[in-house]
Design a protein around this nucleic acid. Structure first.
Length: 482
DNA sequence: ATGTAC
């Protein structure tokens, strides 16, 4: 299948549509949220073909959607949102991704960048020591079988109970860091084994821990509500459910591919394998996915504890400890209510490389954030900048309450490795005042800024289209990678 | 993304 510019119609500024008539198997239109230049970039890989494929999922509602940071992924594009009818529409592991509940959180300090410039080298080294990173890497905690069950059921709460977390953090996490539908018995022994020593570790690839400062404030009122101010030092953490989530995805993709014919489901790409949400296989996957999501929230909580330890070791205990601003998932499926064609409808929202972005008044938000809306955290590529935005009511109308999740990959990992000289890049970043601590040059090359789209353009698109509102821009000064 | 494939 080929998709050309003529197949794509402009609906309004930043919104493009491939009509349902484009392919006989499409159940809904396919929509792209992008500026014209970002749309051109999207045409270069298989993102749009995958977007059109997703439009054929059983029970899909409204439209198959992608955000401006989209790029191709396993079956579904990364940067995609697909809502299927609850309870008998499809659930598809490919629509969530292998790294279940990959997500980001932002911690805030009360220090200003000028105060800590001279500590940055030592701070980045200390963070690197405290926070284990790298492929297959284990951490300080070894979970017993019993403890693993608890982590899978309790999520971030487990870390708080064991002294690896802060109780006040829980209110500042999407779903309070715990999905109630988790069932630990549906997570395989292999997955549990892989996850037993990986709590508190970031892994590799695009995962990182980064120290930034607030370079610019766009919305004073919202920034104040979120506890952000100009010049403030903050910590950004990006990671997910590590080997455990990966194994859950592997286990259930295999099962679901096998079970699919029993439900008479045909999909244009085997990687879109799915079953009805309310089928036995669908429920088993969903409950295991929730358990893996809980592991990821617990992981980010433990990593925050490690970052807090590093902070204390460098700055002493008189400095205010790091505070959690917010934690968002960007690889997850959730049952939510949305208005579709004027009717309140329960749907299973698959977000893969897409962040929830609910607007003001959302009941789950802590009181201090209710008027502002849900924080949306958009990490840029290594050495560029990141953004804090706020969700809007418009996101509910346009994108099932979703927003982009990052800059979006432009080059494949292999292409990036060919083009980038990692030691030179590391030196260049240092000249620009960014300390990079990484376990491998391979990781640095794969994550080079050149491998990503321009995060500024992506953020302009989501803000101009109205699905999120710009609050603050963050500038990195230290990056810890696998 | 991931003990870098079935």
């Amino acid at each position: 299948m080929k998709i050309s510019k003529e197949d794509i119609h402009k609906i309004e500024d930043y919104l493009w549509e491939i009509p349902k008539t484009f392919r006989p198997n499409m159940r809904v239109p396919a929509r792209v949220l992008a500026s014209e230049s970002l749309l051109d970039a999207i045409m270069e890989d298989r993102s749009l073909v995958q977007l059109v494929n997703v439009a054929s999922l059983p029970g899909i509602q409204g439209a198959s959607l992608v955000m401006p940071d989209v790029h191709e992924g396993y079956g579904f594009p990364i940067g995609g949102v697909a809502a299927t009818l609850y309870p008998d529409g499809a659930i598809s592991p490919g629509g969530i991704g292998y790294d279940i509940n990959c997500g980001v959180r932002l911690l805030t300090s009360n220090q200003k960048i000028e105060e800590i410039r001279n500590n940055l080298d030592a701070l980045s080294k200390e963070l690197y020591i405290q926070i284990p990173s790298g492929m297959g890497k284990g951490g300080h905690i070894k979970l017993s079988v019993q403890e693993m069950e608890e982590v899978l059921l309790k999520g971030a709460e487990w870390a708080v109970e064991k002294g690896y977390g802060v109780k006040e953090d829980l209110a500042f996490m999407e779903s309070k860091g715990r999905l109630e539908n988790a069932d630990a018995t549906l997570v395989s022994d292999m997955a549990k084994k892989r996850g037993a020593d990986q709590l508190g570790t970031i892994g590799s690839g695009n995962h990182f821990v980064e120290v930034d400062y607030v370079e610019e404030i766009y919305d004073e009122t919202t920034a104040k509500a979120y506890g952000l101010f100009k010049g403030q030092v903050v910590v950004l953490i990006h990671t997910g459910s590590r080997g455990l989530g990966h194994q859950v995805a592997t286990d259930y993709i295999r099962q679901i591919i096998k079970a699919m014919p029993n439900y008479g489901i045909e999909v244009p790409d085997r990687e879109l394998a799915c079953v009805p949400f309310n089928s036995e296989e669908g429920q088993n996957y969903f409950k295991a996915m929730c358990a893996a999501a809980n592991y990821a929230w617990c992981n980010r909580e433990v990593i925050s504890w490690e970052a807090r330890t590093a902070w204390r070791n460098i700055f002493g205990s008189t400095v205010e400890p790091l505070k959690l601003m917010y934690d968002v998932a960007h690889n997850i499926a959730k049952v939510e209510t949305h208005v579709i064609d004027g009717v309140q409808t329960d749907v299973i929202v698959h977000r893969k490389g897409a962040t929830r972005a609910f607007g003001p008044g959302f009941e789950e938000l802590p009181d201090s954030y209710k008027a502002a809306g849900q924080p949306v955290i958009i990490p840029g590529s290594m050495g560029t900048c990141s953004y804090v935005l706020a969700g809007t009511a418009r996101s509910k109308e346009l994108t099932f309450g979703s927003c982009c999740h990052g800059a979006g990959r432009r080059l494949s990992r292999t292409a990036a490795k060919k083009q980038v000289n990692a030691p030179v890049l590391k030196e260049k970043l240092k000249e620009r005042g960014i300390f990079v601590e990484a376990g491998s040059f391979k990781g640095i090359a794969e994550e080079a800024p050149i491998a990503y789209k321009d995060v500024n353009m992506v953020v302009e698109t989501v803000s101009d289209s109205g699905i999120a509102k710009k609050v603050a821009k963050l500038r990195p000064v230290a990056v810890i990678k696998g």
